[in-house]
Simulated assay, not measured.
Amino acid sequence: MSVSRVVNGSRRVSPEVERKVRAAIEKIGYQPNEAARVLKGTRSSVLGLIVPDLADPFFAGCCNAIQEAAWLAGYMTLMVASAHREELERRETEMMVQRHVAGLIVVAVGAHNDHFAAAQNKGVPLVALDRPIENVQSDTITVDNFKAAVRATEHLIGHQHREIVCVADDERIYTKFERVSGYSRAMKEANLAPRVCLVGAMTGSVEEQVSLHLGSKHPPTAIFAASNVVCTEILHYLREHSMSIPEDLALICFDDFSAATLVTPPITVIQQPLAELGQTATRMMLDRLQNAGGMPSTTIELKTRLVLRNSCGCSGANLEAEPRFSVS
């Protein structure tokens, strides 16, 4: 029994027993056969994880938390990136199913999700991270994108900004749609006209679109960036054009990122609870594995945190943040 627990990654083994078992395993060169485990009817000890971009700080932070939580529960993670391409995501999903993963935690990138439905039909449970999987019923963990965007926009309005532009890179994605909608709601409730600037291959680069708005009859005095990727490009543009933050243009970004506190002035952000997102996604998957088909799909929405720095116009005593996340 002790050997089985060590091989399967269980934490219910004393350090001394684990040391002896691993020494014996190394001596005889034993390698567990995952395929044989599945054929015997034993559930795989591998969780599949598919995200759009492993280099993105948001997805990287979530992946780290999932990997740690899975390891503590006795599972390894098989992690891949879809590069925001639906066809690649489809092939990766099929590969995961062929490798008999115990379950899939996914950040879906497209609207045609029959490959996820097919995985479910083959008995592979799904947990949707960051956004729901369109047209597929699954457990979902996300954040309060809409409410957070409302708070960020209201904060800029509180600094007497009236010409505020929201810059987003893909409104078709659930999270971006919610953030743009929250921004628009706050603007309308303040009797201000929303100005949404969508950037991408079809609409133009961040540089082109921001330049267009700044050259308009009513140039913006503030920008709400709907992601850290967009915010980084805006910072490059402002530096190249010798524009000062917040004197020439105030800025709030949805998503914290390492450079946000390294630039001058530091960037005010909506901070997402990355560790809690990853841990909750893993916990939902483990619950689903223990109660396969025995409970309805659930959706959990976590709270974000507005972190006030200098880019929005705050200074001194005004630099306060909402309470820190509590991660269990």
Rank of each mutant, 00 (worst) to 15 (best):
M1H: 12
M1D: 13
M1E: 13
S4N: 09
G9M: 06
S14N: 09
P15E: 03
K20Y: 09
A23T: 08
P32A: 06
P32V: 01
L39R: 03
K40E: 12
S45L: 07
V46I: 15
L47F: 14
L49P: 10
I50Q: 05
D53Q: 05
D56G: 01
C62P: 00
N64L: 13
A73V: 04
Y75F: 15
Y75L: 10
Y75T: 09
Y75I: 11
A81W: 01
E89I: 12
R90F: 12
T93A: 14
E94Q: 13
R99Y: 12
A102F: 12
L104R: 00
G110M: 07
G110I: 07
A111V: 04
H112T: 14
D114W: 05
H115D: 10
H115L: 07
F116Y: 15
A119Y: 03
L126K: 01
D130S: 14
P132Y: 06
I133T: 06
D139E: 08
T140S: 11
T140D: 02
I157G: 03
E163A: 15
E163D: 14
I164Q: 03
A168S: 15
D169L: 10
R179E: 07
V180K: 01
A193T: 15
V196A: 07
G200Q: 04
A201Y: 06
G204T: 08
G204D: 09
S205A: 08
Q209V: 15
Q209H: 08
V210K: 00
V210Y: 00
L212C: 11
L212R: 14
H213Q: 14
S216P: 01
H218R: 09
I223H: 03
I223M: 14
C231E: 03
C231I: 02
T232N: 11
E233I: 07
I234S: 08
I234W: 09
L238K: 02
S244R: 08
I245K: 05
E247I: 09
D255C: 12
F257M: 08
F257I: 04
A260G: 10
T261H: 02
L262I: 10
V263T: 13
I267Q: 01
A275D: 15
G278I: 03
R283F: 11
L286R: 05
G294V: 02
P296T: 12
P296K: 05
L306D: 05
R309N: 05
G313E: 02
N318V: 00
L319C: 13
S328R: 07
